[in-house]
Design a protein around this nucleic acid. Structure first.
Length: 491
RNA sequence: GGCGCCGUACCCAAGUGGUUAAGGGAGCAGUCUGCAAAACUGCGAUGCAGCGGUUCGACCCCGCUCGGCGCCUCCA
């Protein structure tokens, strides 16, 4: 039974969807005016894993993730570039898809855009005005927070407290400083849509209410996003949605922690962020390998806690994965017929499967799950040294693959070996970096060298054998000798 | 000023009101090996920021202190 920490109640709660076999979840996507950074990657990954795990346990998941494609920052960026907003949003939606593909984040069931839901948004604003929860001033419409009694229940703030600390200039036309815009009249040159209150555009919060209700219904199961969205964004969504329908909106509110650099939140304003594409560009490794490194790193801490991003943390993820893929390489080699150790391995696999469920059920405790994988790796390695049948090898590999698939790990048939380098000073330039040099030999050429070395070893010509090994090593290829005198190698 | 989070070995990171505080990395010492690599084995917190309190018993519950961070403005 899955338990999820619900921000609304401040507790871990057993998860029961509204409908027995279907989970409906909505996650706040990105505002498309710039490239995504590793913090966006974490959020996307956390909910990707949550969705995969729900499916793994047998649910059907309707997963909606929006694009905010009307926004001040988009307009600003468009003006800077002297192009229309559409150009900006199209560019960064495409960039978003490229980045997510690299990370192996699955596409959502629905990926609505705010600009394509104007009718729903306007309807919702109209309802709120009719119910007396919103008011119109000139061409703007504001939500009146005092009219929604439960305002603050998600972020656990009181209106008075907020008022005391308000640091923003208050618009005099608002009835309460915390009232927020549902509809903004447009200035000349800004994108605008016709509405009962004149031409304008929606506020940020209302679009998520409108789109989630449109695609998931008035009440649905999970609403997710980064910690920073708890207030005001999600608080406001609740006020609008519950205010309009009189029903509960989302039932479980899930928020992921930040990625930090040197213990500080990664953000545009601090300038301490790494974009997803820059990480992939700087990586010495293929997209597939870098993807797993990043996923392993991002899942090495429970999703609610902070996570420090560093060169070292990526190395550690890489090293951990090296160990798994070394094992997989051994498992791919032919084994014996059925042997006694097979039974133990089967048992260990079963045990891991159970631990995996327990770990994931506990609010997606991925660090524990990773530790369980490590334990199984160690057990299988031991069994392997005592001999393991071909069949048992295959079932071990299959188990890693199927459980790992929930986290997006262990999916590769080929792995590479070595270190990742992050800092720009040592960024490999094409041609002379070790990572590129390894491409100078084709697999067949490497195999020929390895075969030659095996022959040299047979004739006790260790000098020649060592020469070959060091030559290959300089090309990023590592040889491991097996007990039977033959060798395996890896890039 | 308000709300909230965090502080576990050299580093990363789980965890529990009560037998030995997961796992990984690094390190050291072994086994194996022509040497290496990998794998395996062993060592490694007498203590879980500090101080009080509750309790038969707390790292885990409560309070305070110190240190770090986040939100209250756009933010994953």
């Amino acid at each position: 039974m899955l338990s999820i920490y619900n921000t609304l109640t401040g507790k871990k709660e057993p998860f029961h969807p509204l409908q027995p076999t279907t989970v409906r979840m909505y996650v706040c996507g990105v505002t498309v005016y710039d490239y995504c950074h590793i913090g966006h990657a974490r959020s996307a990954l956390v909910f990707d894993v949550m969705r995969r795990y729900l499916e793994f346990t047998g649910y059907q998941v309707v997963f909606v993730k929006n694009f905010t494609d009307v926004d001040d920052k988009i307009i600003k960026r468009a003006n800077e570039r002297g192009v229309s907003c559409d150009v900006i949003t199209a560019e960064f939606i495409e960039a978003y898809y490229q980045d997510m593909r690299k990370l192996g984040i699955r596409r959502a069931t629905n990926e609505p855009k705010a600009t394509e839901h104007m009718a729903e948004i306007i309807d919702l604003v109209r309802t709120l005005i009719q119910k007396g929860l919103a008011y119109q001033v000139d061409g703007d419409v504001y939500f009146q927070v005092e009219k929604y009694q439960a305002y603050g229940r998600l972020s656990k703030r009181k209106l008075e407290d907020l008022q005391a600390g308000a640091r923003v200039e208050v618009d005099e036309r608002k009835r309460h400083p915390m009232d927020f815009a549902l509809w903004k009249s447009s200035k000349p040159g800004e994108p605008s849509w016709p509405s009962p209150w004149g031409p304008g555009r929606p506020g940020w919060h209302i679009e998520c209410s409108a789109m989630s209700m449109r695609h998931l219904g008035e009440t649905f199961d999970i609403h997710g996003g980064g910690m920073d969205l708890i207030f005001p964004h999600h608080e406001n969504e609740i006020a609008q949605s519950c205010g309009a329908t009189g029903k509960e909106f989302a039932r479980y509110w899930v928020h992921n922690g930040f990625v930090q650099i040197n213990q500080e939140k990664m953000s545009k304003s601090l300038g301490n962020f790494f974009t997803i594409r820059e990480i992939f560009e700087k990586s010495e490794w293929s997209v597939e390998v870098t993807r797993e490194i990043l996923r392993y790193f991002l899942l090495s801490t429970q999703y609610r806690g902070p996570l420090d991003f560093s060169d070292q943390s990526l190395r550690e993820a890489k090293n951990a994965l090296n160990g798994f893929y070394d094992l997989f390489k051994r498992l791919a080699e032919p084994g014996l017929g059925s042997v006694e150790t097979d039974g133990e391995t089967d048992m260990e696999i079963g045990f891991t499967r159970e631990s995996f469920r327990m770990g994931m059920d506990d609010d997606l405790n991925t660090p524990v799950v990773l530790a369980e994988f490590q334990r199984l790796k160690s057990e299988v390695n031991k069994s392997l040294s005592q001999g393991l049948s071909t069949e048992a090898r295959k079932s071990a590999r299959d188990e890693f693959r199927s459980l790992g698939n929930v986290l997006g790990l262990f999916q590769l048939d080929k792995w590479q070996f070595g270190l990742i380098r992050m800092d720009s000073e040592r960024r490999p330039s094409a041609g002379n970096a070790p990572g590129f040099a390894s491409t100078l030999f084709s697999d067949a050429e490497v195999q020929r060298k390895v075969d030659e070395r095996v022959e040299a070893k047979k004739t006790k010509d260790f000098k020649r054998a060592d020469e070959i090994r060091s030559e290959l090593k300089s090309h990023g290829i590592v040889i491991e000798d097996k007990p039977d005198g033959t060798s395996r190698w890896k890039r």
